[in-house]
Design a protein around this nucleic acid. Structure first.
Length: 279
DNA sequence: TGGTCGATGGTCT
DNA sequence: GACCATCGACCAT
């Protein structure tokens, strides 16, 4: 593997350490920083089995909670930001609902974006869903063993990569899915922070694979997006360089990755970018 | 705790 | 045949 892979990971590990420290120090985060959302106690208890309340079609207020196609019909940068705070829901065949709040995304802008699979207008069988209507899932295999999940946005070949979730429900099922799919599955139990803190981790945790490619996030029965509960304050959003695209020249440095500042669920923290936070 | 590197196979040139 | 929007095991400190 290229040397940059190792260096990149090393940086990430260092940043993670800092983040853990910071998350533990911030019992009550300052305005604009991450605030915990309501969730089940994270005591490693299994998600409630059997029939579960579903807010598939309506919220407690009676208005539709599921985000429809109009939500996805916006430019990639705008959609990438709009995703933050919304809740991704995956319903398994047995009815179990896995839920996670989106805390980190990346925008891929289309033909002009040297880091996008659609760069130069390339359209192949693999990336066809990038060119389909906004809200279409683009799921592809990476490094021969992982999946990444994108959502098509407005704009030819433009999409948003989902990079990290704050797990909200079904954590034990996520842990099982992640452990089963990991190499050396007999290892220790994964911590909550390790469940969805990366684009392929979240695909494992939610059982998203190639069969989800070209599905419509606005209409699918097994996966959808719900409006996240509004917090007391608008979360501060960090715009940073995207991850793992060192080959893309100037495009590698553009601030097209977005994450909720201070969230301990983010995969990679960029301290330099955080000095220039846009709330 | 931090840094290195191998796994693995579809996709593209 | 090379590349790859990743991940985690392993080793040195």
């Amino acid at each position: 593997m290229p040397a940059r892979g190792g260096a990149q990971l090393s940086r990430r590990l260092g940043q993670k350490k800092q983040r853990l420290l910071e998350a533990e120090q911030h019992q009550s985060p300052p305005d604009g920083a991450w605030t915990p959302s309501p969730r089940e106690p994270s005591l490693g208890l299994p998600a409630t089995p059997g029939p579960q309340r579903s807010i598939y079609f309506s919220s407690p207020q009676g208005r539709p909670a599921r985000l429809g196609s109009e939500f996805f019909d916006q430019p990639a940068v705008s959609l990438a930001r709009a995703f933050l705070g919304q809740v991704l829901v995956r319903q398994l065949d047995n009815g179990t609902e896995l839920r996670g709040r989106i805390v980190e995304t990346e925008a891929y802008l289309g033909p002009e974006d040297e880091a996008a699979h659609s760069r130069g207008g390339r359209q192949t069988p693999r990336n066809r869903s990038m060119f389909m209507e906004p809200g279409t899932l683009y799921v592809y295999l990476i490094y021969g063993m992982y999946f990444c999940m994108n959502v098509s946005s407005r704009g030819e070949g433009a999409c948003v990569l989902l990079r990290a979730l704050e797990p909200l429900g079904g954590l034990e099922t996520m842990r099982q899915l992640r452990s089963t799919l990991r190499k050396g599955a007999a290892g220790r139990a994964l911590r909550d922070r390790e469940l969805c803190s990366g684009p392929s981790k979240l695909c494992q945790a939610l059982a998203i694979d190639k069969s989800f490619d070209q599905r419509d996030l606005a209409k699918d029965k097994a996966v959808w997006l719900e409006r996240g509960p509004p917090g007391p304050t608008e979360p501060a959003v960090v715009a940073a360089a995207r991850v793992g695209i060192g080959h893309a020249g100037e495009w590698a440095h553009k601030p097209l990755r977005f994450y909720i500042q201070g969230s301990p669920w983010v995969s990679v923290v960029d301290r330099a970018a955080e000095r220039d936070v846009q709330a």
